[in-house]
Amino acid sequence: MRLFSRLALTVAACMAAGTVSAAEVNVYSARKDHLIKPVLDAFTQASGITVNLLSANETQLLERLKSEGKDSPADLFITTDVAHLHAARVAGILAPVQSAVLAKNIPAQYHDPQGYWYGLSARARVIFYAMDRVKPTDLSTYEDLATAKWKGRICVRSSSSTYNQSLLGGLIAVMGPEKAEAWAKGITDNMARKPQGGDRDQIAAVAAGQCDVAIANTYYFGGMQTSDKADEKAAAAKVGLFFPNQADRGAHMNVAGAGLTISAKNKAEAVKLLEFMSGEVAQKLFAEANNEFPVLPSAKMSPTVAAWGPFKGEKINVAMLGENASQAVRIFDRVGWR
């Protein structure tokens, strides 16, 4: 036992030593490896700065950051959803960044007003419909989905998903908690089946005829359209994408983003990486690899995404979504949306 712990300490010391040498940046990331890796590799190539990556789910990373506090080896925290960025800010583990590059590249609605975090790619949570059973003209708004005409026709995933929590968080922001709760109740009453699976499963269920409409994130649909699996591609072909609320506030928007940690020892490098991710090269990679909307207005969308056509997105600051997330979960609990 003593020998072992000594050995472990040595290993630990070596590893720790490895993380403090110059020209590198340590990243805790909740994004999928295959999405974030190409961007980080491109950064290393462009800057010569090594990136050390730890990928895990964001709640756990958040807890780890909280317990490590000022001693954390992490310089940058990347999440897939704004709610966790907000939670990280509230927990006091993010440090504000002021950068002319970031301010120029990222529209104000997609970053924290004080610069604690920056959205790096955007997605809309929209309506998907079975093209053989639903006419686009039947569809209009999120609110409309909660009306009786959709009874037994909606597929949507569990409310444990942060995407749904953010969606309801956004509705709380624009219509107030009472109306938002009534909406959630309406959707729950209209469900074709108990919420299950991920966003792709909802779109696939529409294609399979288990339901007529589904609520899901845009990039999942893009992924299915460009999938190398024949059945996914075929399923996507039966399904249409509808941007709701085009006549009023626009479709619900969310971002994946990143923030600098209070413990950052490689602050300059971390900010460089942030700026790089908001720049042309990285934005193109996000857009191409995952069919997301670039936050940089000048960056080009992927052909798949471009084919969905122009649409109007909500203009509220996405920070609101995070702020309302926990209230949203309580509403989901109350209305029985599992």
């Binding site: 712990s5 472990a8 300490l9 290993v11 630990a12 010391a13 590893m15 720790a16 993380t19 403090v20 730890l54 317990s67 490590e68 506090g69 001693d71 954390s72 080896p73 020892k265």
Partner: peptide
């Protein structure tokens, strides 16, 4: 992390420089 911190503080006391968290995020952990 608490253990790690106390190690780090001790080492800092000896050498003047904090080694950071030695155990957290290692195979040992």
């Amino acid at each position: 992390v608490a253990l790690d911190r106390s190690i780090a503080r001790t080492v800092e006391g000896w050498t003047g420089a904090s080694p950071g968290l030695l155990l957290t995020g290692t195979i040992f952990a």
